[in-house]
Every structure is written in C-alpha cells, then in structure tokens.
Design a protein around this nucleic acid. Structure first.
Lengths: 152, 152
DNA sequence: TTGGTTGCAAACAGTTTGCAACGGT
DNA sequence: ACCGTTGCAAACTGTTTGCAACCAA
C-alpha cells in the first residue's frame, strides 16, 4: 500500500536526523497523506488527528508540522487569509506546485505542470538571481463559478 | 511634484466612493508613497506615520490600509512570515508585480515585467480558469549574497 | 444633526513557549 | 537515568472590533 511506503520513508528521514516517528507524529502524517489535495490548516489537521488520537495536543500538531516543514516533507503555504496551510511535497518534486484560488467560492486547485521553466531562465539571467524555489498563485474564477455566473 | 499628483488622484478615488481623505489617511498614503520600494508592514507604516502625526492610532492605520486595499491603491502581500505587507500598485498596472525574495539576507526585489502572459494563456485554456490576478514569488539567492558566498 | 472617522482598549485568532510529566533505550 | 517528546495552559503577535467622542458638510 502506497501510504505505508511513504510513511516508512518519512520515518527513515526522521531517523536520519535523529528524530522519532512517535504515534502522534505518525497520526499527523497519516492525516496529511489521506487528505493530500486539501490544503489543511494546522487546526484542520488537529481536528482530523483528534478523531484517531483524541489525546493529542494542538501544540504537538504545530510542532510536528514545523518539523515536517524543516524536513521538506510538507510545504507551508499561505493564501492571504491569516492561516498557514500545509501541503505534502510530491516525491522528488524539485519545485513547488502552483495553485488556482477561486475568488468566488474559495476552492483551491493544484497544478503540477512546471510552467515556469522559461520564466526562470529569464529571471536568473536578467537579475542574477539564483532561484531555489517559487510560489505561483492565480486568483480568478473557477470553471464551476463561471457556469453559475452564466445562469444568473 | 509627483507625490502631490498621486495624492490628488487617490483623493478623487476616495471621493468617488464617498470616502474622505482625512489628515490621518493622507499621512498614511504619504508614508506609502515615500517608501514605495519597501514592502512595509502595518506596524512599519504605523511607526512612520507616527513621526509626522503622533496622535494616530494603530487601528486607524489598519483601517486605512484595508480601505486602500479595497480601492486597489495598494496590494496586501504576504511572504510567509505571519505579517501582511502593503505595496503601492503602480499606476495603471493591470497585474500585480513579482518578487524575488533572498533566502540569505531577506531582501525583496521587485520585477515589473509581465512574465506570465504565456503561462496565463495556457492555464486559462487548460483549466477553464478565468484569471483575475496573480502572485509570483521566487525564493533564492540575490546577486549580493552570491558574491559573498564566492568569497567564503 | 447626521454619518463617516478616530483613538483607545478590549477582544480575537493563530501560533509559540515554559514546564512538569512521560516513555523508550 | 537520560533525552527527546508530549499535553496543558499561559504568553505572544498581528489584526479586528465596540464604543464614545469627534468633526466636517
């Protein structure tokens, strides 16, 4: 099963830096894996983890998410409301994926395609800037809301 | 003088929506104009405004910045620390400009060029997503820090 | 006199931290 | 016994809100 594999790999990653995959941490990772497309906030993760491990504390979830961010297992993102969201990094993905945020319904869609190769070349050349990562978000109206507006 | 012109224009924009350019608001706008390249946080703005108008309250600054954001005079941005920063929109700029954030020294550089035209066409076509605005940030190492690293 | 605006303080939301207790090695 | 980890509560930070006072039209 895919999930078990990924947990095993994360476990090894933790061990390499002499951290442990405690039950609380495992439960947290499991929630992230099971809701991979969902852009959960720390609070969201907390509530979901609580269903399986009711004794867990919010602080532990925060600490785990911070740890996972350091290990680059997840990315901490921020769509402008004051809330951090956490996104699993795809295996071997060199770059952060992009997001489409609908300003009508708030839905967030992900784009895996690397659209920025050309743009990055230009930036690196013209600004002598060594790019390590990027964040690209489009704000607009999603397919669904476009349909709804037509019917108005 | 350039600044006076821009204030005059913002004043008109406010009046059109029956808001007033009060002394506090003017002082706030002035600070933004005088620190145009600086990506100030609300707190930053507050401290700078206080030098000229010591009686102003933090809440007023927040309310003014919110108002200016609504009017699209400024853009509210967010580089991942928990702080909102405010950036004057260039006159007539259809799109938000881009940023280069240096992960060594924290400096933020701006790019005015619209690099995303082609990418946007692809996204609008492939995802049926009507793009209204975008945010693009590159994280990496700036010219300066690259030099410093060479010398190590 | 009305309605937008202000300053202050209190409230709030998300996040972090201090600390004593816990648990595996 | 040690040391990383946990849960809890308190602290903190950035932001928002309620409200009485204010001020220009």
């Amino acid at each position: 099963m895919e999930i078990e594999n990924r947990i095993e790999r994360i476990k090894k990653q933790l061990h390499q830096q002499s951290y442990k995959l405690t039950p609380q941490r495992e439960a947290t990772v499991r929630v992230l894996l099971e809701n991979e497309e969902d852009h959960l906030s720390a609070e969201d993760v907390y509530l979901l983890v609580k269903e399986k491990a009711p004794e867990i504390g919010l602080a532990t979830v925060y600490r785990t998410l911070e740890l996972l961010t350091e290990l680059k297992v997840v990315d901490k993102i921020n769509f402008g409301d004051g809330v951090s969201r956490f996104d699993l990094r795809k295996e071997g993905a060199a770059h952060f994926h992009h997001h489409l945020v609908c300003i009508e319904c708030g839905k967030v869609e992900e784009i895996e395609d690397d659209l920025l190769e050309d743009v990055e070349k230009i930036v690196e050349r013209d600004f002598t800037f060594k790019i390590m990562d990027h964040r690209l978000t489009f704000h607009g109206i999603c397919r669904n809301c476009q349909q709804l507006k037509k019917g108005e």
